[in-house]
Amino acid sequence: MNIRVGNVATRKFVVDAATMQWFREVAQDTSRIHCDAAYARSRGFDGPVVYGGIMLAHLSHLLGMCIPGENGASVAWSINYHNPLYVDEPAEIFLEVTYVSPGTGIVESRFSIRAGEKEVATGTAQSVVPLDEIGA
């Protein structure tokens, strides 16, 4: 792969109840905003809020399978959550390369997660790749 600034990748996803249950068991996070619909509504949400960790799993897919791909390794991630994503709500994650360093093999990207017009989260990711995978 010849990674360059401006390369993009996207992935559409929907988080269903089964995935929420799976993540709940993996993370052992039973916080009520993710598990208790009545409680979530009492806090002003439309229903249980999708775990941020599940959204990061989709970031992991883009980084590991698309940019920088299978030969990369993540060095740093950051994410800011802006609006809730709900169960069964279609969403899309968009990733764009913002910086490449041919000397070090570092690739930096920014990403955003949207559900229609709603911006759910934004963040950045930094990966290191073999030097020959970075474009001149």
Binding site: A76, Y99, G103, T104, G105, I106
Partner: peptide
């Protein structure tokens, strides 16, 4: 490598 990228930028 993170250090060197910060210096580059």
């Amino acid at each position: 490598v993170q250090f060197l990228v910060l210096v580059e930028k």
